[in-house]
């Protein structure tokens, strides 16, 4: 696993932190989702107005994205997670190796998120009797964290999932 600062291609966003790892390595241990999201949250939150609150929120949001990737990816390839900042906004960019099935999942999920009526979809998904829908984390970010999602193709068989978050509303 590499951790460091690198270009995110995020335009006006300034890069903060990036890690990359072989997908099969990342997917070998569920606890990586928690560890990576907690580590990232700590590292980027210290200069927000309430670092502890921000860290809790960011860790929760990033963890849901990482859990989604953990479950839905192509068996091999490079997984990259980067975070960039522009003022009060944070941009999470996940480069995920995909096959035809998982590529369709991510494209379909982002399409749904941009269709509207996301809150009711999310609340229905939360209380479903069966297993959790695989897009539950993305729905939560869109509803509870007002995340805006986009998706674009990346080099090789990969997609780049982009989530813009604004977790800090005021100084109070």
């Amino acid at each position: 696993m590499d951790l460091g600062a690198a270009s995110t291609g995020a335009g006006e966003y300034a890069e903060l932190l990036e890690f990359d790892m072989d997908m099969d390595g990342f997917a070998s241990n569920w606890a990586y989702c928690d560890r990576v999201s907690t580590y990232f949250a700590r590292m980027i939150s210290h200069n927000r107005s309430d670092s502890l609150l921000y860290s809790n929120l960011f860790s929760s949001a990033l963890n849901e994205l990482l859990e989604t990737v953990y479950r839905l990816h192509a068996p091999s390839g490079r997984f990259v997670c980067s975070v960039a900042r522009k003022a009060a906004s944070e941009r999470i960019v996940l480069t995920v190796p995909v096959d035809a099935r998982t590529a369709e999942f991510y494209r379909g999920a982002v399409r749904v998120l941009n269709e509207g009526d996301v809150a009711s979809r999310y609340h229905n998904a939360l209380f479903t009797d069966g297993p959790l829908q695989p897009n539950i984390g993305l729905l939560e970010l869109a509803v509870d964290y007002a995340a805006r999602f986009s998706i674009e193709p990346a080099d090789g068989n990969a997609i780049r999932l982009i989530a813009d978050l604004k977790l800090e509303e005021s100084d109070a």
């Binding site: 928690d34 907690t38 809790n56 860790s59 929760s60 963890n63 849901e64 859990e67 939360l126 209380f127 479903t128 009797d129 959790l132 539950i136 984390g137 939560e140």
Partner: peptide, 17 residues
């Protein structure tokens, strides 16, 4: 309870309801 993912919430919510 600092961190709770949707898997855990789903289980808790089901039991509480």
């Amino acid at each position: 309870l600092v961190r709770l993912n949707n898997v855990a919430f789903h289980a808790l919510a089901g039991a509480l309801l």
